[in-house]
C-alpha cells in the first residue's frame, strides 16, 4: 500500500497534489491523506485520479505547513493503512516535510523525482538539469517526492470514499509560529507550477521595459521569470530568478527574451519541453538549446507576438 499527501489551498487540491496523486495511483494501490479544511466533494473527486480512499484530518491548523505536525500525521496515516511508500510533491512542503518523514519512518528518500523509467528505477534530474541520475528503488520503506510539472494529472471517473482521521497533536508539533503570509504571485500561477513561462534577461535594458514581457505572459496565461543579473540589479524580484542558483523549472513552454543562455541559466530551464529564444545576437549560445528561435530586437518582435497570441485566442 502507498500513501500520498494531498495538499490543500483554500479548500481545493493543489495542482502539485493532483500530480502526486495521479503519479502514485499509477505506481500502485494508494490511499490519500488530506490535511486541512476541504469539503467532502473535493476529496471524493480524487477518485477520478485513481484513489479509492481518502483519510482526512479536518483540522484548520493544518491549512498551513508545520513540518513536525505534518510528519506526525503522515507517519500515523502510513501505519494506519499499512503503507510502506509515501509520495508527495517536491514543492516547498515536500522540501520541509519529506526528509523528516523519511527519517521518522526509517525509509529511503528519493527527492525531486522526475519519472519511473523502470519498475525498480527512479529518475531524477541532477546538476540542476544538466543530467539525470537513475536510482535503485529500494524494496523497503520509501518516501518519494515528485518534481512539479513532471507528471500530468488527467481526471478519469470514480469517487473516493472519505474517512475522517485524527492524530493527537502536541503543542510541540507546531514548533514555529507563522506570523505572516505575503502573496507574491498576485493571483497568478506560481512560477514552479506554471505551464508557460516568459523570461527576460539583461537584453531588456531596464525594469521599465518589462511591460512587453508581462503583456506576452498575460496573453499566454504564463508566469514571468528572469535571469540572475536581472534579479541581482533589482529589476525583478529574487523569486523570479531561474537557473542553477535560482529555481529550476520545467514548463511545457519557456520563452527567453534577451537572455544570452549562459550555462548556469540553461541548467535551470533546460528541462522545459519547448524552448523559444528571442535574441538580437545570432551567436547567442541559447539558440543551441532552443527549439524555436528568432534573431531580432525584442522591442519590435515581442509586441507582435503578443498580438498574434491574442488573435489566436480570440479564434481569429
Amino acid at each position: 500500500m502507498q500513501l500520498v499527501l494531498v495538499e490543500l489551498i483554500n479548500g481545493k487540491c493543489k495542482k502539485t497534489a493532483l500530480e502526486a496523486v495521479a503519479f502514485a495511483a499509477k505506481m500502485g494501490e494508494t490511499t490519500a491523506l488530506a490535511l486541512g479544511t476541504a469539503s467532502a466533494d473535493t476529496l471524493q473527486a480524487l477518485g477520478a485520479y485513481g484513489i479509492g480512499k481518502v483519510l482526512h484530518i479536518n483540522n484548520e491548523k493544518l491549512n498551513q505547513v508545520y513540518s513536525k505536525a505534518y510528519t506526525k500525521a503522515i507517519a500515523a496515516a502510513a501505519t494506519h493503512v499499512g503503507a510502506d511508500t509515501v509520495i508527495l510533491s517536491h514543492n516547498s512542503t515536500g522540501r520541509m516535510v519529506a526528509p523528516r518523514v523519511a527519517v521518522r519512518m526509517e525509509a529511503a528518500l528519493f527527492a525531486g523525482v522526475n519519472e519511473l523509467p523502470g519498475n525498480d528505477t527512479i529518475r531524477k534530474a541532477v546538476f540542476s538539469g544538466k543530467a539525470f541520475a537513475d536510482l535503485q528503488m529500494s524494496t523497503g520503506k520509501k518516501v518519494i517526492s515528485l518534481n512539479p510539472n513532471s507528471y500530468k494529472a488527467v481526471a478519469g471517473t470514480g469517487t473516493a470514499s472519505v474517512e475522517s482521521f485524527s492524530v493527537d497533536f502536541a503543542d510541540s508539533d507546531f514548533d514555529y509560529a507563522i506570523t505572516g503570509v505575503e502573496d507574491e504571485a498576485g493571483g497568478h500561477v506560481p512560477l514552479p507550477e506554471a505551464e508557460i513561462v516568459v523570461s527576460g534577461g539583461r537584453g531588456l535594458k531596464g525594469p521599465e521595459h518589462w511591460g512587453i514581457v508581462e503583456d506576452l505572459a498575460k496573453a499566454l496565461g504564463a508566469a514571468t521569470a528572469c535571469s540572475r543579473p536581472v534579479a541581482d540589479i533589482g529589476w525583478r524580484p529574487h523569486h523570479e530568478h531561474v537557473g542553477q542558483t535560482g529555481i529550476t523549472i520545467k514548463p511545457t513552454l519557456y520563452i527567453a527574451v534577451g537572455i544570452s543562455g549562459a550555462i548556469q541559466h540553461l541548467a535551470g530551464v533546460n528541462q522545459s519541453k519547448v524552448i523559444v529564444v528571442i535574441n538580437k545576437d545570432p551567436e547567442a549560445p541559447f539558440f543551441k538549446a532552443a527549439d524555436y528561435g528568432i534573431v531580432g530586437d525584442a522591442f519590435e518582435v515581442l509586441p507582435r507576438i503578443t498580438e498574434a497570441v491574442k488573435k489566436l485566442h480570440a479564434g481569429a
Binding site: T121, L135, Q136, A290, I294
Partner: peptide
C-alpha cells in the same frame, strides 16, 4: 546509504533550432 545512484543518463540532444524570421 539508502538511495545511491545506479547510473547517470545524459539528456537527449535538442533536434536543432528552427529559425523564424524577425
Amino acid at each position: 546509504a539508502k538511495s545511491p545512484v545506479k547510473v547517470f543518463v545524459m539528456p537527449a540532444e535538442k533536434q536543432g533550432c528552427k529559425m523564424i524570421s524577425a
